[in-house]
Design a protein around this nucleic acid. Structure first.
Lengths: 144, 144
DNA sequence: GCAAATTAAGTTGTGTACAACCGAATTGTG
DNA sequence: CACAATTCGGTTGTACACAACTTAATTTGC
């Protein structure tokens, strides 16, 4: 007897739902900054260290140039980053923060706490969840 | 001192990455069936019980008509579902499986096992992960 | 009974994701 | 040096997500 898989049993659906729910919690907060969630992720990487190449950002976030190129163009239009063709290697585009982009960092400080507050999980549970998800993502990438 | 949030500390990013990695594992398998991942989710719901209204599917999956209407139109073009305007309530559209749509269920039986195999986590860990994610999603929805 | 409110599905517009492909710049190798 | 292979960023095309809006059908409140 072949039994069709059930929706409520699927880890995959649980991940998909939780990810969209978390993004939805961030959305109104990020709206105030003028950012979408993927744009916020790019800014997070740049706040740690800049300038970064497009490829470099892509490896950090798991996104390719087809996603990042237009996203970065929008961040540039918003005035948060600047794209400069590298002199040494004309293929590379260095993504720099503008002063406005740097200032945004301060306004973003409290954002992760909102998710923690809304999560209904203890700090340890959240930390364990993050660790498990990290291992899962690693394993899934290795499985290709 | 305001410290910018760090990418690698964010549960939100862990969820986002894991979700996309899981979808990537499913993609080649679903390609064989001719389905995308969201289309597969819709089929999962229909395999459990049909016909279902668009709203009904939306509540089950957390998707709105803006996502589902075109998706269902594509599933109809593929020949897996049929959309029929309800007689009792002319506003409603009942989504029925076609014979081809029903048959697909058998071919989809083994799919969740692929994720479990690729996950590198024990059955208990996966089950605990699914439960934690379920509670998280619930709490995040309630927080609005 | 009937106008106002609500509901169902669809449409439009913006912004990801991601595969597939392209052109220019650089690198490796004979 | 020459030239094939690789690398980098970008473009195109398809398919979600989701906000905001539209239209048609049904409920409701008085």
């Amino acid at each position: 007897m072949t039994e069709a898989p059930r929706l409520d049993r699927q880890v995959c659906f649980a991940l998909y739902s939780a990810s969209r729910a978390a993004t939805a919690v961030y959305r109104p907060i990020l709206d105030d900054l003028g950012l979408t969630y993927p744009q916020y992720l790019v800014m997070l990487v740049l706040w740690e260290s800049e300038p970064r190449g497009v490829k470099d950002l892509g490896e950090e976030l798991g996104l390719d140039s087809g996603t990042l190129s237009p996203l970065l163009k929008r961040l540039e239009t918003l005035g948060f980053v600047e794209r400069r063709r590298s002199g040494e290697d004309e293929r590379r585009v260095a993504i720099h923060l503008t002063p406005a982009g740097r200032e945004l960092s301060g306004r973003a400080t409290g954002i992760p706490q909102h998710l923690a507050d809304a999560a209904g999980l203890s700090a340890e549970e959240l930390e364990q969840l993050r660790a498990t998800l990290g291992r899962l993502t690693e394993a899934l990438h290795r499985s290709h």
